[in-house]
Design a protein around this nucleic acid. Structure first.
Lengths: 362, 362
DNA sequence: GCACTTTACTAAAACGCTTAAGTGCTGTTA
DNA sequence: TAACAGCACTTAAGCGTTTTAGTAAAGTGC
């Protein structure tokens, strides 16, 4: 890169000490080695005057630590369209850099090689892994966890040694669907996001079914549609739903992104929201409060998600098991104006765009 | 991490060759060293049988190459709320991994240390840098470019040696504003995104001014508002605009994100879009086509943006100056339903300044 | 004042790879 | 047949750190 590379050797020479001393001064944490204050100052001065910056590769090789963490996403498409992810990424970025870690992003593109990111582990390019929404069949993940490689997964991951952050997708979907039921809806469609083998999507579907079961409503498969991650797919799935059935009064959407697509579809078909059909989403992505109608949804704090994941992972990398090892973030219902009682009874219920109105704790 | 680390030494022993031979076999590009096919097979077999994966730190130290590229964002807030960025990130992710590079993300959080990412360069943690929307006053960037460190900036970067991808913000804003003018609007408000010293926001503002000038319309500062990056700020700025003036018939929004906020504000004030006020955004983020009304905007291919930036950067890292070194991506106007001709009024026929305010209420 | 700990350092061995320079070969050419 | 070139390797010198083991000098206990 730059012509005259400054190494520890240069600093040592300038300060009149050995490179070991420079190293000890720079890694102050190493208390086992006493350094005279006067020497320390001399070294620090030399560092400043020469503009020395430690070389990452040398440090990496000698210490075995890369000072890098990876954020693994289950799908590149998901990253491209879902506004929930950038919030996680943004706070993860903050936590990492504040703690001196670099942040690698790895979005899986090739579904036939879902664990290609493992190379980063085997190459020793990273010190830890935060895997968003892993599929349960990834045996490699358990191998890593069992080998004490720092990994953060979801809190429901079926390995007692695992550490995780997240929220209960099942419970959140239950909350959303229960709310629709409490408003008087009985014919509630379900618009899933992501393929059926996508664990979070499946959990949300499970929550939907559970809510219906609690209210003694049978799940009607003609009211269940599977979108993928995009707005387009939400639009398409909602259109299909409207063609298949004309008697549902509400839609539970697996996330806000497909909900936005669905709203557009309903709008184009002349359906008025919430007068004719109510819709509730999930995630409370940034635009949700600014739609017309503003979207009723389940709020999850994406920034907190990223922050906690980052902090847990860093603690794991430093050798401390985070306490508690599994964190379920609270989710809360935010009632805005995309939901109301079904057509038979008319009632207006709307919340503000910013506050989101009524909160129902978890 | 894993207990029994396999090194080149192990592979060499197993194949009955020296570690240099293993290295030459693995880095097939190095044609300068001839290897007998039979030996090559033996080495490859040993690699496979032992499950050898090269160690990133060793390779990095010896070669001076980190095999990592960094994507630098000017603001963490921008990342958090702007849906345009994930599209760039997603395709950048793809290009990087296909070419054997890791992708680091660095969003600047602390505006007082805007060049903190430079540490990654000086530490030699990265082989190249893609800086999205850098501020022109970052002298460090020119220092890097002059020192032949691989950097991709915007195509308008004022350094003849610089390589860049992007699109003309000025021209795109011009396109958008010209369209409003061609529809008959004369009183056009401008809702900038980002602070005034944010280069892209300033360029878009410039394009707006230019379009007005071409049509002999004076820029009226009471019709110019500065939001930041978020939907909220767009909402607030549009509200202020409505309070300050009641005679504008269109809004040019600096990006779709603030446009979404503005639409919500107009909606809440009882303004109907596009009947009372037209609005045009910029970027064509994924939800824009699914809003009600669907947003007229300037389309930019975010995925192509990321892909080209990635490819150019990789070519630079490999020592080849990309041809052409500066790419302006096309932008095109996408007309949806948030724009129309201004409300018909007698004074509209006269042209010039309007005396009568338009009916904005109901 | 002798053995001892403590203090403040240094020497040098890793860490795992790349790569320039060298080493025997066999085959070719003058 | 000597000189040389090409082939298929190996040797070994780094790359820039960290860290263990060691050492000289000063301090402490009795």
């Amino acid at each position: 890169m730059r012509a005259g590379k400054i190494t520890m050797q240069d600093v040592a020479r300038k300060a009149g000490v050995s490179i070991a001393t420079v190293s000890f001064v720079l890694n102050k944490k190493s208390v086992q080695m006493a350094i005279a204050p006067e020497t320390r100052e001399r070294v620090l001065l030399a560092v400043k005057e020469l503009g020395y910056v430690p070389n990452a590769a040398g440090r990496h090789l000698a210490s075995g630590k890369s000072h890098a963490l990876a954020f693994v996403l289950p799908s590149a498409v998901h990253l491209r369209v879902d506004a929930f992810i950038p919030q996680i990424l943004s706070s993860l970025n903050e936590v990492c850099h504040q703690n001196g870690f670099n942040l690698l992003v790895y979005a899986i593109e090739d579904p036939s090689r879902p664990d290609a990111y493992m190379d980063m582990v085997h190459e020793n390019s990273i010190d830890g892994l935060f895997i968003l929404n892993p599929r349960e069949d990834e045996e490699q993940i358990n191998a890593l966890i069992d080998a004490d490689f720092p990994v953060i997964v979801g809190p429901g991951w079926p390995n007692p040694k695992a550490c995780g952050v997240g929220f209960s997708n099942r419970h959140a979907a239950l909350q959303a669907t229960e709310y629709l039921i409490s408003e008087g809806h009985r014919r509630i469609a379900c618009l899933n996001y992501g393929p059926e083998n996508y664990l979070t999507a499946a959990s949300r579907y499970k929550g939907y079914c559970e809510a219906l079961a609690q209210a003694d409503i049978a799940v009607d498969k003609t009211l269940v549609a599977w979108a993928d991650f995009s707005h387009e797919s939400g639009y398409r799935a909602a259109s299909e739903l409207l063609e298949r059935a004309d008697d549902f009064t509400a839609i539970f959407a697996g996330n806000d992104t497909v909900a936005i697509g669905a709203i557009a579809a309903l709008h184009d078909k002349g359906v008025e929201i919430p007068r004719d059909i109510s819709i509730v989403g999930m995630d409370d992505i940034p635009p949700s409060g600014f739609l017309s109608p503003a979207l009723t949804t389940i709020h999850v704090d994406g920034a907190e998600y990223g922050r906690q994941a980052g902090e847990m992972l860093i603690s794991l990398v430093k050798g401390t098991r985070p306490q508690p090892p599994r964190v379920y973030l609270p989710t809360r219902l935010v009632i805005r104006s995309s939901t109301a009682a079904p057509p038979v009874r008319s009632s207006a219920l709307a919340g503000g765009r910013f506050s989101g109105g009524i909160c129902q704790g978890k």
